[in-house]
Amino acid sequence: MTFSEKFQKTTDVKHWLGDMEVDHFLYTAGIAGEAFFVALRDKGVILGTRCELCGITYVPPRIYCEHCFAELNEYTDVGLRGRVRSFTIARLGKDGNELKKPEIFAVIDFGSGTTGLLHKLGEVTPETVKVGLDVEAVLKPKSQRGGHITDIEYFRPVG
């Protein structure tokens, strides 16, 4: 099917501009998220939930095991230390412009069989970062923590 009339008058209206009319989204952290962020904010600890049957520790915690659907309601402190499973070095910001200083993002495991937490690495350079690097969480001072993932400033190499 072809249109009998082609779009030729370029002075005509061609585009209509608009935006997303939603003002903002408010995401509750949920049941497991509430436990995780309150513990991080108030006690400075990282929590997970474990499914013994599947041998998986969920960090951040979930109230169910995604493999067997068991209810998980016991939260365990997995410590502040972890290990880099994989990483990427960001040289461009989200606007596409070059960053003054590259940022390193990593998936961090807390012992074997954990699900992995995405966070930033610090006190490490693109030259020295590697898979398997042992890291620990650097937390904001308690007074500045608000129950957000950014209450952890970054993870830095241990020792």
Binding site: F7, L17, D19, H148
Partner: peptide, 23 residues
């Protein structure tokens, strides 16, 4: 507003093509 939550503001702009007929 008291439970742990995150606020996100959408930052999207659109330019919808009006098309032949509507133009």
């Amino acid at each position: 507003k008291q439970v742990c939550h995150v606020v996100a503001r959408p930052q999207v702009k659109y330019a919808w093509a009006v098309g032949v007929a509507m133009s």
